[in-house]
């Protein structure tokens, strides 16, 4: 479904600020895979997401979605295949437009936009049905401007907008990080339900290790632009936070040791 091959990118090359953000990344997702990505700040998680979405381009490497080479396609063209939720609850919706108008925009993601009404009676019923599944009462507020919603409500709406057209790939970029614990829990629950309902192939970045362990069928740990750990299936279901931390230390201290060996 999603295939990344030899992705590399370096920012500010040949300057003191040079940063190898991704080093020869290879990753392949089957249809319905739900992969959680963890790693410290600057590990390359967001860069990886941006490579898939097309808001950044790699120096070398290929991106295939559904067998189609998309590495040259700009973000807006790839967006037909990709649903996306950002960390900032304000980023995924248009604040001065109503809930139904936002949903109408999301509905025309996979096709050419035409000169016909975006919100029709039929569509309004459809939107109501989708919104009522969120169980937060948004179905009665179709005409409310999104700017009046709380952060949690906006993020729930963003999540719905990103998923209900069943994209080939769903990208979740720390989408619960800016919410309070109870809202984050609600959004996590919704995420699980929506991904299961539509059987979406998902990449999710998170800083919450427990969340990374609980969700999905595969876990990836990144560090310094590389994938250093890739656990899936049964092995993942038995995973604990302690295991992860121990593994991280083992992998990185080994390298540290070898670096020191070089210095000596």
């Amino acid at each position: 479904m999603l295939k990344l091959q030899h992705l590399s990118v370096t920012f500010n090359e040949n300057t003191p600020n040079e940063k190898k953000a991704l080093k020869d990344i290879n990753l392949s997702l089957k249809k319905g895979d739900f992969v959680t990505i963890i790693g410290s700040n600057g590990a390359g998680k967001s860069t990886l997401m941006n490579m898939v979405s097309g808001s950044l381009f790699p120096d070398v490497g290929d991106v295939f979605i559904n067998g189609k080479q998309v590495v040259h396609l700009p973000e807006y063209k790839r967006a037909r295949m990709i649903g996306r939720v950002f960390q900032d609850p304000m980023a995924g919706t248009a604040p001065t437009m109503t809930i139904e108008e936002n949903l109408a925009i999301a509905l025309s993601r996979c096709k050419k936009r035409r000169l016909t009404f975006g919100v029709t009676k039929k569509r309004r019923e459809l939107f109501k049905a989708y919104l009522s599944k969120l169980n937060i009462g948004l179905e009665n507020r179709l005409m409310t401007k999104v700017g009046f919603l709380s952060g949690g409500e906006r993020q729930a709406l963003s999540l719905l907008m990103a998923t209900f057209t069943e994209p080939d790939i769903l990208l979740l970029d720390e989408h619960t990080a800016a919410l309070d614990p109870s809202r984050a829990e609600l959004i996590t629950q919704l995420t699980k339900e929506l991904i299961e309902t539509y059987e979406l192939t998902t990449l999710m970045v998170t800083h919450n290790m427990q969340q990374a362990i609980d969700l999905g069928n595969r876990l990836i740990m990144m560090d310094k632009g590389e994938i250093i750990l890739d656990i899936s299936g049964e092995e993942k279901s038995k995973l604990t936070i302690e295991d992860l931390l121990a593994e991280f230390k083992r992998l990185r201290i080994e390298e540290f040791e070898s670096d020191r060996a070089l210095l000596v």
Partner: peptide, 14 residues
Amino acid sequence: RATGDNKKMIRSFS
């Protein structure tokens, strides 16, 4: 309208 409101969002909706 969304372009004037939130460019990042509308780009992610193709």
